[in-house]
């Protein structure tokens, strides 16, 4: 366990010793605010955070792979992976340590959007439960994106390639659940397949959590997604670490 914490602590600190964290936080907070108001926060004339949460998946498609791309690609490029994995640390501990550090960093980014929640509470009388489940859904979604980004960071030594691949993978999983995609797919695919595509998408599960319903299938979707991609990442890392 101490090895996990060592990796976790180092990774989390490294975000804040480099400008990365600050650049990321500023851009993330700016766009999360901008998109919220662009969605028509005031026009809805409702004191809730729907406008904020709706724009998050799109923002995450770019922002989360940007956090994840360096996790392993950089380590392999610089060669520090040889140091890390010759310390008494197993590949699994290292992968999990880095993953959770990056996830906590994203959680911090999400937590820093609190002025939005305060604004909503000031303007009206929102359903606090809905805000909490909204944040929970966002956190799970960030974890899912991160697991995908983590995997692609293992796959390529180049940060740019791992960024592009994970943006594409995340975008596919988000857009698969958009009404336009589903409408189009339903013109030539049987209904069963369309609903399968729908259920594979982030969008569908994120929206249902955001509505305040914590269903087992939505939670298990995110948990399975995270576990699957992280496990795949550590298997691939074991094979390619020295390459």
């Amino acid at each position: 366990m101490h090895s996990f914490w060592a990796v976790f602590k180092r990774e989390l600190k490294s975000y804040f010793t480099t400008p990365l964290a600050y650049v990321f936080l500023v851009i993330f907070l700016f766009f999360s605010g901008y998109l919220t108001f662009k969605q028509g926060f005031y026009e809805m004339r409702q004191a809730d955070m729907r406008a904020f949460f709706i724009s998050l998946p799109l923002l995450f498609v770019f922002m989360v792979p940007a956090t994840a791309m360096r996790l392993w690609a950089e380590e392999r490029k610089v060669g520090s992976i040889e140091l890390l994995l010759t310390l008494p640390i197993t590949v699994t501990q290292a992968v999990l340590g880095k993953f959770f550090a990056a996830w906590l960093f994203l959680a911090i980014a999400l937590a820093l959007t609190f002025p939005m929640a305060i604004t909503v509470c000031y303007l009206g009388d929102p359903d606090v439960g809905l805000i909490i489940t909204g944040y929970l859904g966002s956190l799970l979604m960030a974890g899912g994106f991160l697991a995908i980004g983590c995997f692609f960071s293992v796959v390529s030594k180049s940060q740019v390639i791992s960024f592009v691949l994970s943006v594409v993978a995340c975008a596919v999983l988000v857009f698969a659940g958009m009404p336009t995609t589903l409408n189009f797919a339903s013109t030539f695919l049987p209904a069963g397949l369309v609903s399968a595509i729908e259920n594979m998408s982030f969008q569908t599960h994120f929206e249902s959590i955001q509505k305040g319903v914590l269903e087992f299938k939505d939670l298990s979707y995110f948990v399975l997604l995270i576990v699957g991609w992280v496990a795949a990442g550590s298997i691939v890392l074991n094979e390619t670490k020295a390459g």
Binding site: A6, R10, S14, T17, E82
Partner: peptide
């Protein structure tokens, strides 16, 4: 290791403390 890889953005002290963490 060859070329003594390390975490370049860390200070020497922080780096050695990380190794201590990992080595308990």
């Amino acid at each position: 290791a060859e070329n003594a890889p390390a975490y370049n953005e860390m200070t020497v002290g922080a780096f050695l403390n990380f190794v201590c963490d990992a080595r308990q």
